[in-house]
Design a protein around this nucleic acid. Structure first.
Length: 570
RNA sequence: CGGGGUGUAGCGCAGCCUGGUAGCGCACUGCGUUCGGGACGCAGGUGUCGGAGGUUCAAAUCCUCUCACCCCGACCA
């Protein structure tokens, strides 16, 4: 491709709203352009990237025995009413009416449609298992789209749905999909991790998320460097500390702590580490009365874990200020378990602490030397915090570390949540009608592009992994306008490289060198050849990898071969 | 939905407080010089000042309503 015949639209300046680096670079490089909030046009350059990702996903899905299908974006309300999700899905489901005032929606996911197809077509265990997938535009009317295509309302997803006669078959396909995903992200050249995930509202037995690792990622992943343990922090279990609780040594003492509201202020005021403090969080209880949760000062509450406690009200609600004052006699910042008559749930770490500091239930006062059993009744002990780096790995094989990641894939064993709702039955070997087992497997195709940039960039722009780069090689003649030999050499090289099957972009714009080089770097082309007067004097061209800081010289004679070896080694 | 913010040229912004002929930089067009790391000179085009209503002799500026977008909270690929 020649730049003069392409539609390159790079920008020096970025729209003010772009917050994260991938969004800024995607706009600056002209990969995408916003049409409305969370809705983007994929410009020609961006589309090339998207198509390369799609191709790899498609090839690996096909190789894993999945069959491609294309389902409609617009779906009738009846199917969604049948599954119950017309009401359950809420405002995220974009609804519309046709000219006859019939209700439709734009598909945010396709369990209903694919189930409808399968229940009509599949009658016998002999037709199972079946794994159908599509790569298609979805619409979810997100409350708050942000970060460009990272969290868009309209986005491209690869969604697959598998159907099985029994759980063993489901588990086989599930494993095949996990392996398929690992191959996809490996081929895309991304650093990633598969982690055990919370099955959340869907339930079921197994679920894994695939995260592209990036410091800016929204999700925290706990993993054990000494084993293969990896889980979303939401799910990772914080084990009880080893050994028995320490003996009470200090006397219970009330100290005035004027103006102290946060743990940081408390630590500064008393000159103690956060590990010796306990913070109190009050939620509405299942019986309507507040429940006191106790956490070590430096730990974070894990709402997913708390939501599983029987003592709390669902959906979770932090207790209102008036409720707290009425029950504790003090405001948030001064709360504690001593003299509190109600349910107290202590994190396992807190349950093993002694001589700690906690709010006194008197405004602007704390208690020091607090001990469980002596100063207040033994609380319910539960795992209610996020794990932190250094915690023992739940598999007992070492200590946890925390990484940040961007969720780009999610696989679920749905079991028969939908097969029951939509009556997906088949006849087994004995002629008995049974419900199918189902799995579903998603990949955020558009999100992958943003995640890849988030993981691979520098101050000059994007550094695409080869597999998803819009072009493999940039060919930049310098001074072609005044030196016909430079132009002729570049043109000849362009033909030869293209003939050798290299996806090359020739910058034939006669731009100044700085502009041309900066553009090629911004759009993230992984390899570059510069043809200039300087090199031609000695029959050479300059090669430079996008991550390298210095060029190397290739002899013009075997430039194509040299380039091939660099590109293929990538 | 609640809280905060911004809407002025394709992009980034000033002007608004204190009403009086709509500006700057980048980008764009033409000519010339330059050109191995985002050049320079000269000339030029570009605006429903988000929209509607109001106050006023006069509104980008003040008031009311409205729309869009951005940021902070519950969702998710």
């Amino acid at each position: 491709m020649r730049v003069s015949q392409f539609f390159l639209s790079t920008h020096k300046e970025t729209p003010a709203e772009a917050e994260i680096v991938s969004h800024r670079l995607m706009l600056r490089a002209g990969l995408i352009r916003q049409l409305a909030r969370g809705i983007y046009t994929w410009m020609p350059l961006g589309l090339r990237v998207l198509r390369k990702v799609e191709r790899i996903v498609r090839e690996e899905m096909n190789a894993s025995g999945a069959i491609e299908i294309a389902m409609p974006a617009v779906q009738p309300a009846e199917l969604w009413q049948e599954s119950g999700r017309w009401d359950e899905f809420g405002p995220e489901l974009l609804r519309l009416k046709d000219r006859h005032q019939r209700d439709f929606c734009i598909g945010p996911t396709h369990e209903e449609v694919v189930s409808d197809i399968v229940r009509q077509e599949v009658r016998s265990y002999r037709q199972l298992p079946l794994n159908l997938y599509q790569i298609q535009t979805k619409f979810r009317d997100e409350i708050r789209p942000r970060f460009g295509v990272m969290r868009a309302r309209e986005f491209v997803m690869k969604d697959a749905y598998s159907f099985h006669a029994d759980v063993e078959s489901l588990e086989r396909t599930y494993r095949a999909m996990v392996e398929c995903y690992a191959r996809i992200f490996t081929r895309l050249g991304l650093k990633f991790r598969a982690v055990a995930a919370d099955t959340g509202a869907i339930g079921g037995t197994g679920s894994h998320e695939f995260h592209v690792l990036a410091d800016s990622g929204e999700d925290a992943i706990a993993y054990c460097p000494d084993s293969d343990y990896a889980a979303n922090v939401e799910l990772a279990e914080a084990l009880p500390p080893p050994g028995p609780r320490g003996n009470a040594a200090a006397a219970l003492t009330r100290v005035a702590t004027p103006g102290v509201k946060t743990i940081a202020e408390l630590c500064a005021f008393l000159a103690i580490p956060a590990e010796r403090t306990v913070k109190a969080v009050v939620l509405d209880g299942a019986d309507g009365r507040p429940v006191l949760l106790m956490l070590r000062g430096d730990h974070e509450l894990n709402l997913a874990k708390v939501a599983k406690l029987e003592q709390v009200k669902r959906p979770l609600a932090f207790a209102a200020g008036e409720t707290i004052r009425a029950r504790f006699g003090a405001g948030p910042g001064s709360l504690g378990p001593v003299n509190f008559k109600g349910v107290v749930i202590a994190d396992r770490t807190v349950a093993a602490m002694s001589d700690f500091v906690v709010g006194a239930n008197v405004d602007d006062h704390h208690l020091t030397g607090v001990n469980i059993g002596r100063d207040f009744p033994e609380p319910v002990a539960a795992d209610i915090r996020n794990v932190v780096a250094g915690d023992a790995s739940p598999d007992g094989k070492g200590r946890l570390d925390i990484l940040r990641g961007i969720e780009v894939g999610h696989v679920f064993q749905l079991r028969n949540k939908y097969s029951r709702a939509l009556n997906l039955s088949f006849l087994d070997e004995t002629g008995k009608s049974r419900l199918m087992e189902m799995g579903c497997y998603g990949i955020g195709v558009t999100r992958i592009v943003a995640a890849a940039i988030e993981q691979n960039h520098d101050e000059r722009g994007i550094i695409f992994p080869r597999a998803m780069a819009p072009f493999e090689l940039a060919l930049v003649p310098i001074g072609a306008a005044k030196n016909p030999q430079v132009r002729a050499t570049a043109e000849a090289l362009y033909r030869d490289l293209a003939a050798a099957g290299i996806d090359v972009l020739l910058d034939d714009r006669d731009e100044r060198p700085g502009v041309a080089l900066a553009d090629m770097e911004l759009i993230g082309i992984p390899h570059r050849i510069v043809v200039g007067e300087r090199g031609l004097k000695t029959g050479q061209v300059e090669y430079q990898g996008r991550r390298e800081s210095k060029p190397q010289l290739f002899s013009l004679h075997d430039a194509v071969k040299s380039v091939e070896s660099m590109v293929c080694a990538d």
